[in-house]
Design a binder for these strands. Structure first.
Length: 770
DNA sequence: GAAGAGCTATTTTTT
DNA sequence: ATAGCTCTTC
């Protein structure tokens, strides 16, 4: 019957067809895991299961989006529309919008990202008059994250002598107070951090059986991707929701568990059979992605780990090339090697830039590589690092918007109350805060009733006036929000607050880029409004947009088809694949990381991380290490990574260092693991260094060029063109209509059906003209 | 209250 | 090395 089943191998098909009861799919790297998941969901629907009753939890938004698209291809997009598919965080944020009031949160609660959380924590520690060198905000945040992920509430903490003792032993006896103050502060602001989204979901489900019953009844079929990277909190949610029908299918690979540092518990997957004794279990072991050399080398690596499920990954693909291992003399040399090699392979094999990825252990490694790529004019795209929505200027504007939705959002308020500068300084804020605390009110409540409370705050008339102006302005935005769409309001905010002017006045390259980012944000708001209107998903609400923003990662803003070399950390590369993958920095203390050498468990996670990196490669993996590297502003010596020695030499091709000099191409011999300096190279390398520093550019190209409303190249779209839209994908232009300045295009998208889009805002790319 | 100078932590990974 | 933070000065 269904053609998709014929696209599966035996085990895959069995896993797809096991629709009822608990199922575990252990999916080796490149074994078609996503295919199984998508077809399984499609199969459910083809067997009469209402998409309304299916919940699919993924690790990233991107994975959810891609999977949804693929499912739509099988069952049609109108069918796929009702599927609940997304990350734990986004799905349960949506549920909490409805249920959080049961816990005393407003339904328009703000989601605090890492930055917000850190800022709250800093304030907490200052408030409690603790030494921030002992109570390091980041560390405290991590500790609290651990508590939350293990469902240890503040009260539970104080009832747990073991935890208290542990914190006392760590010389942080006030940890409980910090925890309490942090939670209270968030609560008062009507805000949840990432961990809260899971913790509060658990709380609602436990405390309100009728709510649990509602969602149990709704989500009759539950699927969890990347199960090896779920934490305890997520585990409990899944368990609770699935306990009625037990139609739970988890998919994952214990060998690719790489998020222990943020609470992922590999025992969730290792113990699935214990939780569900009659679970069916399938192991996908055939790798369709990589060459034999890569698969075998990766198997060598992972075999060194003790904690794992038995699995025998194999491939019938070509043997492939051996894996080059390049020994660089410096990190700059390594970067230059990567750039040159990309250039060579690209020419030789006629590949595109986006066939290449460079996967590194730490973000800091990207710098040298970027520089080398720029020098060779190879376009690249950096993933991760600071995401678009975390940039200062973007976050400033967003904070204004957040404040309109949730006036108690203190982080947002404090961020914008004096930005752009309007003469409301620290002293003023302190006086206000003190008064608000005394009155058990939020800052905003005091500001709202300034004429009443003003005289009692001890602030002078001039300052009160400034505050009054500020609050009046905010209120005018709120009024406007009732009658205008969020794009118009945001534009008004940007103008009225002086934020736009502030950025316009700054004509440094950084300032220009900031202005561009604001424009980009406004564009995406406009796009959001358009899209929501077209999708008929009720009134486009600012709250929805802000939620997307809070949970968005850098991966989500990707222009998929851009022909650029991908640069990212290994963590971010999970689930992706590339024909050619570079893994630089294979040195002790870097990969494996210095921080993870203490226990076997930590080292095993590093090893899995390397396993993940290696198995991203389809045709070729290219490894490198350097004998010296700039770190902490100093040059330090480095030893090759132990992981290099864990692979059988027969899979590897140790390359001697060849200086990438334009003139001198003489190969230099050096011991593979020796670290003798090569004097000849050092001399020659001098002029290069000079050149490199001269070409240093501070600006990294940010996303696509921003789209200005009214941009000329939008006019070039005509009837019959095949175009690509950021979200809707590929489609054909059926007709054009409207004023020259407001042309709307009727487009039939392959996966999303027919849409009418305003050309000036829909970022369309012409794919072909017929 | 704002601007500039100096200091210091940061480099492990992130929904 | 660098950005962000804190302190000092006007």
């Amino acid at each position: 019957m269904s053609t998709y089943l014929s696209e599966l191998n035996d085990v895959q098909r069995q896993a797809v067809e096991a629709l009822e009861g608990p199922v575990m799919v252990i999916a080796g790297a490149g074994s078609g895991k996503t295919r199984v998941l998508t077809y399984r969901i499609a199969h459910l629907m083809n067997n009469g299961v209402d998409s309304f009753n299916i919940l699919a939890l993924t690790f990233t938004n991107k994975a959810a989006r891609e999977m949804k698209e693929r499912i739509a291809k099988v069952v049609g997009h109108s069918e796929a529309k009702n599927l609940w598919m997304g990350t734990f965080h986004s799905i349960f944020a949506r549920i909490l919008r409805v249920e959080a009031p049961l816990l005393g949160y407003p339904s328009n609660f703000t989601i605090y990202d890492q930055q917000d959380a850190l800022s709250v924590m800093r304030k907490v520690i200052t408030d409690l008059q603790l030494d921030k060198d002992i109570y390091k905000p980041k560390q405290m945040l991590n500790r609290i994250s651990q508590f939350k992920n293990n469902l240890i509430t503040v009260r539970a903490y104080f009832n747990n002598p073991e935890l208290i003792e542990a914190d006392e032993a760590a010389m942080k006896p006030k940890t409980g107070e910090v925890y309490r103050a942090y939670v209270e502060r968030c609560y008062k602001s009507g805000a949840m951090d990432f961990d809260d989204l899971l913790l509060r979901t658990n709380e609602v489900l436990t405390r309100f059986p009728e709510v649990l019953a509602k969602y149990q009844d709704r989500f009759r079929y539950i699927m969890v991707d990347e199960y090896q990277d779920t934490n305890h909190s997520q585990y409990l949610i899944v368990k609770a929701l699935a306990s009625r029908f037990e139609n739970l299918c988890v998919v994952g690979d214990d060998a690719q568990s790489i998020y222990a540092f943020r609470g992922a518990n590999i025992r969730n997957i290792l113990g699935f059979q214990k939780d569900y004794p009659d679970a069916k279990s399938f192991a996908l072991e055939q790798n369709y992605r990589s060459t034999q050399n890569i698969v075998n080398a990766a198997n060598d690596i992972i075999a060194k780990n003790k904690d794992q499920l038995k699995k025998d990954v194999w491939t019938s693909n070509d043997e492939g090339k051996t894996i080059p291992v390049y020994r660089a003399l410096t990190d700059i040399d390594e970067a230059r090697f990567i750039a040159s090699r990309i250039f060579e392979i690209k020419m030789r094999d006629q590949l595109n830039n986006n066939d290449f990825a460079v996967l590194y252990r730490t973000n800091a490694q990207s710098r040298a590589i970027e520089e080398a790529l720029r020098k060779k004019n190879i376009p690249y795209r950096i993933f991760g690092g600071i995401s678009f929505y975390q940039r200062k200027e973007v976050k400033d504007l967003i904070s204004y918007l957040r404040l309109l939705i949730n006036t108690n959002d203190e982080e947002a308020l404090l961020r914008v109350i004096n930005y752009p500068k309007r003469g409301i300084g620290l002293t003023t804020i302190q006086k206000l805060t003190v008064f608000a605390d005394e009155q058990k009110m939020t800052l905003y409540e005091v500001l709202e009733n300034l004429s009443l409370y003003g005289p009692r705050t001890g602030l002078n008339g001039g300052t009160l006036n400034k505050l009054h102006n500020f609050i009046t302005m905010l209120q005018s935005f709120q009024v406007k929000l009732k009658t205008h769409d969020v794009f118009e309001v945001a534009l008004e905010v940007a103008k009225q607050t002086g934020l736009l002017k502030e950025l316009r006045d700054d004509d440094t390259p950084e300032g220009i880029s900031r202005l561009e980012n604001i424009q980009e944000l406004l564009n995406s708001l406009q796009g959001f409004v358009e899209e929501q209107q077209q999708l008929d998903e009720g009134n486009p609400s600012l709250a929805n947009f802000l939620e997307d923003v809070a949970l968005a990662t850098d991966m989500d803003n990707e222009d998929e088809d851009a022909d650029k070399v991908a640069l990212m950390t290994v963590h971010l590369a999970k689930g992706l694949e590339f024909p050619i993958v570079f893994i630089p920095g294979l040195e002790e203390n870097l990969f494996p990381s210095m921080m993870n050498l203490n226990t076997r468990l930590e080292l095993e996670e590093e090893r899995r991380l390397f396993y993940v990196a290696l198995t991203r490669a389809e045709k070729q993996a290219i490894l490198s290490y350097s004998v010296s590297r700039q770190r902490w502003g100093k040059i330090i010596d480095a030893e090759p990574s132990r992981f290099l020695e864990e692979m059988d030499d027969k899979y590897l091709d140790w390359e001697n260092p060849t200086p990438m000099l334009p003139v001198n191409n003489s190969g230099l011999s050096g011991d593979l693991f020796g670290d003798k300096p090569v004097p000849r190279f050092k001399k020659k390398s001098q002029p290069i260094k000079k050149k490199l520093t001269n070409t240093t550019q501070t600006l990294r190209p940010l996303k696509q060029a921003q789209v200005n409303p009214g941009d000329a190249d939008h006019q070039t779209i005509e009837e019959g063109y095949t175009v690509v839209h950021d979200r809707f994908g590929k489609g054909k232009v059926l007709s054009l209509e409207g004023e020259p300045d407001n042309v709307k295009a009727k487009i039939l998208f392959d996966n999303s059906g027919e849409k009418k889009l305003l050309l000036k805002f829909a970022k369309l790319r012409v794919l072909s003209k017929n």
